Amino acid sequence: MRVLAAMSGGVDSAVAAARMVEAGHDVVGVHLALSRNPQSYRSGARGCCTIEDSRDARRAADVIGIPFYIWDMAERFAADVVDDFVAEYAAGRTPNPCLRCNEKIKFSAVLERALALDFDAVATGHYAQIVDTPDGRELHRAVDPAKDQSYVLGVLNQEQLAHAFFPLGDTPKTEIRAEAERRGLSVAAKPDSHDICFIADGNTEGFLSKQLGEAPGDIVDAQGNKLGEHKGTHGFTVGQRKGLKIGTPAADGKPRFVLDISPVDRRVTVGSRAELAVERLTASKPRWCGPAPTETLHVKAQLRAHGEEIAVTARVVDDRVLVEFDEPADAVAPGQAVVLYDGTRVIGSATIDSVERATQHV
């Protein structure tokens, strides 16, 4: 097969490309230039898509012995990922930009271009597994639970999975670094990137403030009593405990958490941990990795990239996904993705629109 290997400049994508060559495929490496103003050097493990990263990717391609190109996708990334991220926060929601990048960039824009150039598939360094079955391809969790990235790949449909390879899904991360060193790849000890790649300093609130400006409002309790003030709702996420800057302590002396964010009236509502508990949610824009479910599902759900599995009952009604938790879940926020699993198999994902709290029935 002719395979396009997406090479970020990190150890995972470099080893993934090398494994595809070793498997006998005709491989071409490509680095995605996603930043309009790339930094010369990254700051430790923060950020990506720097000039340094592109050079690391090129050096890895030279060692592996494959052609290498850089594709400028900065405008597409800005429109589909960065602008979406800012707009979601402005609306009081909590988006996952990595999930959106996989959906819109790596397995939409890149795959479309690859197929147009007569490639058969795209390979990445994601930690997940693809299993071929008589009914099509299935997306499964990686064997290394600490590195599993199936959550952010839950947006991929059957057509995209048919043209995807994840060569690292069957291997623990510690072995990948050792393999990179054996292959003579200089990125073997390079730190993994983390946090949001386009916010290199990790200051999400500062980034959003530059984009959205200040919009002062009140911090209130569930009864509407004013407890403090803020400079913008975009500085908060549901479930947040630190940085609330409330001068008045709670009556019971226990910590308070963000329960709700309302940009329209600029209110941030806080309350106790018990008030965070959610019994059910409604989600929209489902993306199914296989056929859409037609029956009620008794499965597991994951609500954050590194969150734990939760037992749920899920139904699809008029292109919406209704999810009820077996036990109440904490800090479930509109804008997050709910990804459904049957064992290790990813069924699909949807974007959370609304939640119903357990305290609404008390």
Rank of each mutant, 00 (worst) to 15 (best):
A142Q: 01
V143D: 07
D144F: 13
D144A: 11
D144C: 08
D144I: 10
P145D: 06
A146H: 10
K147N: 10
K147A: 11
D148Q: 06
D148P: 10
Q149D: 05
S150W: 04
S150P: 12
S150I: 05
Y151Q: 10
V152T: 12
V152A: 10
V152G: 02
L153F: 12
L153S: 04
V155Y: 00
V155H: 00
V155D: 02
L156T: 12
L156A: 10
E159D: 14
E159I: 14
E159L: 13
E159S: 15
Q160Y: 05
Q160R: 15
Q160S: 15
L161V: 07
L161S: 05
L161M: 11
F165R: 11
F166T: 10
F166M: 11
F166Q: 04
P167M: 07
P167K: 03
P167V: 03
P167E: 01
G169Q: 03
G169H: 00
G169L: 04
D170P: 01
D170G: 10
T171A: 05
P172T: 01
K173C: 03
K173M: 02
T174A: 12
E175V: 12
E175F: 15
E175Q: 15
I176F: 06
I176Q: 01
R177Q: 09
R177E: 09
A178N: 12
A178T: 11
A178L: 13
A178E: 14
E179M: 12
E179A: 09
E179H: 08
A180S: 12
E181G: 09
E181D: 15
R183Y: 07
R183T: 03
G184C: 08
L185F: 11
S186V: 13
V187K: 00
A188G: 07
A188T: 07
A189E: 14
A189F: 12
K190N: 06
D192G: 13
D192V: 14
D192A: 14
D192Y: 11
S193R: 05
S193T: 05
S193C: 07
S193P: 05
H194T: 12
H194R: 15
D195E: 14
